[in-house]
Computed example of a mutant assay.
Amino acid sequence: MRFDIITVLPGLLESPFAHSILLRAQKKGIAEIQVHNLRDYATNKQKSVDDYPYGGGSGMIMTVEPFANCINHLKTQREYDEVIFMTPDGETLNQHIANQLSIKENVMVLCGHYKGIDQRIRDNFVTREISVGDYVLSGGELPAAVLVDAVVRLIPGVLSDETSALSDSFQDGLLDAPLYTRPAEWNGQAVPPILLSGNAGEIEKWRHEQALERTKQRRPDLLS
Results as ranks from 00 to 15, higher is better:
residue 176 D to Y: 00
residue 56 G to R: 12
residue 15 S to R: 13
residue 183 P to A: 08
residue 220 P to L: 12
residue 182 R to Q: 12
residue 142 L to V: 12
residue 114 Y to P: 00
residue 155 I to V: 12
residue 32 E to W: 03
residue 4 D to N: 10
residue 74 L to E: 04
residue 85 F to N: 05
residue 172 D to C: 00
residue 221 D to K: 09
residue 48 S to A: 10
residue 3 F to Y: 07
residue 60 M to R: 00
residue 38 L to D: 04
residue 68 A to R: 04
residue 158 V to D: 02
residue 125 F to D: 06
residue 205 K to F: 09
residue 187 N to H: 15
residue 173 G to L: 07
residue 140 G to W: 09
residue 199 N to G: 01
residue 13 L to R: 04
residue 168 D to S: 09
residue 153 R to I: 07
residue 79 E to T: 14
residue 152 V to P: 02
residue 201 G to W: 01
residue 162 E to M: 10
residue 117 I to R: 00
residue 19 H to E: 14
residue 26 Q to K: 04
residue 21 I to Y: 06
residue 148 V to D: 01
residue 118 D to C: 02
residue 202 E to Q: 15
residue 173 G to D: 02
residue 13 L to V: 08
residue 45 K to W: 07
residue 111 C to N: 01
residue 193 P to E: 15
residue 204 E to M: 02
residue 67 F to Y: 14
residue 39 R to E: 11
residue 125 F to P: 01
residue 164 S to W: 08
residue 200 A to F: 09
residue 185 E to P: 00
residue 5 I to N: 04
residue 170 F to V: 00
residue 24 R to F: 12
residue 223 L to G: 13
residue 132 V to F: 02
residue 158 V to S: 00
residue 90 G to I: 02
residue 223 L to S: 10
residue 180 Y to L: 14
residue 47 K to S: 10
residue 34 Q to W: 05
residue 26 Q to F: 05
residue 105 E to K: 15
residue 215 T to Y: 04
residue 53 P to I: 14
residue 160 S to A: 08
residue 97 I to W: 02
residue 154 L to W: 01
residue 204 E to K: 14
residue 176 D to W: 03
residue 78 R to N: 13
residue 107 V to F: 07
residue 46 Q to P: 05
residue 182 R to M: 13
residue 214 R to E: 09
residue 153 R to W: 10
residue 10 P to E: 09
residue 99 N to S: 11
residue 64 V to M: 06
residue 216 K to P: 08
residue 174 L to E: 07
residue 126 V to R: 00
residue 3 F to R: 00
residue 223 L to H: 11
residue 48 S to N: 08
residue 218 R to K: 15
residue 119 Q to T: 10
residue 25 A to L: 09
residue 208 H to F: 13
residue 31 A to W: 01
residue 137 L to R: 04
residue 175 L to W: 09
residue 198 G to R: 07
residue 16 P to M: 04
residue 54 Y to R: 11
residue 8 V to N: 03
residue 203 I to N: 11
residue 212 L to N: 06
residue 129 E to P: 00
residue 74 L to C: 06
residue 23 L to S: 04
residue 104 K to C: 14
residue 176 D to G: 10
residue 163 T to W: 08
residue 183 P to V: 08
residue 57 G to I: 10
residue 110 L to M: 12
residue 128 R to F: 06
residue 84 I to R: 00
residue 92 T to I: 15
residue 178 P to H: 13
residue 183 P to E: 05
residue 10 P to S: 08
residue 99 N to F: 05
residue 130 I to A: 00
residue 42 A to P: 08
residue 3 F to T: 03
residue 34 Q to V: 12
residue 23 L to V: 05
residue 139 G to L: 09
residue 187 N to C: 14
residue 212 L to Q: 04
residue 194 I to Y: 03
residue 195 L to N: 07
residue 172 D to I: 05
residue 196 L to I: 05
residue 23 L to K: 15
residue 15 S to H: 12
residue 49 V to R: 03
residue 118 D to Q: 06
residue 139 G to Q: 08
